[in-house]
Amino acid sequence: MSSRKPHLGIVSLSKYARSETGVIDEGPYTNEHLVAEDVIWSGTSGRFDYGKRDLRDCADSFLIHFGLSGDPLDTHLLSLSRALEQEGYPVLNSFEFTWTCGDKYFALERARGLGIPTPQTLLAKPTGTNVPAIVSTVESELSYPLVIKPRGTMKGFGVIKVTDSDLLVSALQLYSSSGMSCLIQEFVESGGREVRCFYAGGELVGIYDRRRGSDRFIGVATPRAGQESGVSVSRMAAELPEARVLISSCEQLLAGFTWDLAAIDWFGSDHGLVLNEINTVPGIYSMPEADRVIFHERVADAIRRRSQSSRRPHDVAG
């Protein structure tokens, strides 16, 4: 490739992409959001168009920005992810990785099957009429306080700490009106601690330990250094015993997938760290500036690597 910066196309549903328009310069690469609904199969085998251009001409590599939201277009985005990959478009993170980790329940079930500690979790689809039955099941299997949150989505949207039956009913009714499935989980007494393991370019960038007052509810493990008072974020030395355990667990979670980017979040507990979720489009506000430089350099390398290894239709013709 030329010496110009590699360009990443982040493919999102319009409700996300159109709120983040324009090209962003991340140092060693640039990126912009592309509207998934505007990516059209051209009728020519193996080709997708965006506007009047071959999608391949819009970016060097693509990243599917997926978090299961209950929107009917979720299926469109996943189908597009699989189709682009099958047709040889350069995509960061495979369809299987994006699908599994974009669905928080799937990710937790995978972890549980590997013997990795997770919160006790129930999956529910409130419809209004079934709310009493869900409440009965929850109260027979979990104790208050508990946490209710979307099966997917991002940035901690819709995460609620539930302290009694009335609040549980209200939260379930809210989810019923939204049409979204939800996870109902035991509340992990974290003591105000959460940990994030950042990966980019297929490698660990760092492990970041965030601590804040134990009386504050941690809805989602997304440490944002310097953006809250009373919050400290530090890098955990990889040689520490706890870090080695974390790295081993992360390697188990990532094994078997083709992936480039990931952020794996953990809650502290009296019995050790417990998995919260896996993010395939990680925000980087939780790491020091020097580590962000490393992160961006590895993303740039991943964009180039995927672009160079992809195939165009004429590469396999005949």
Rank of each mutant, 00 (worst) to 15 (best):
L34P: 09
V39H: 01
F62N: 10
R53Q: 14
G51Y: 12
E26R: 15
H65Y: 15
L68E: 14
G43N: 06
D57P: 03
E26Q: 10
V23Y: 03
T44L: 10
L68W: 06
S12L: 02
I10W: 14
G43K: 12
S61F: 03
V23C: 08
G67S: 13
V35G: 06
H7Y: 07
I24V: 14
P6S: 08
G9D: 01
R4W: 04
I24P: 02
H65V: 02
P6G: 07
G51E: 07
G43L: 09
G70Q: 04
A17R: 05
D49H: 08
D25L: 06
E37W: 11
D71Y: 07
E37D: 11
S45D: 10
D49G: 00
V23G: 01
V35D: 14
H33A: 10
R18H: 07
S14I: 03
V39Y: 00
S12N: 01
L8V: 02
D49I: 00
A17T: 01
F48E: 01
R18E: 15
T30C: 13
K5V: 02
Y29F: 15
N31H: 15
D38T: 05
G70P: 11
S14L: 00
S19W: 07
L13S: 00
I10S: 03
H65W: 12
H7N: 10
D25A: 10
R47H: 04
A17W: 08
T44G: 06
L55C: 09
D60G: 08
V23W: 05
L13W: 02
S42M: 02
L55P: 10
G51N: 03
S12R: 02
T21E: 15
E37Q: 12
V39E: 01
S14E: 13
A17D: 09
Y50D: 02
N31V: 02
P28Q: 04
I64M: 13
D38E: 15
R53N: 13
G43E: 04
L13V: 08
K52S: 10
D57R: 12
F62W: 01
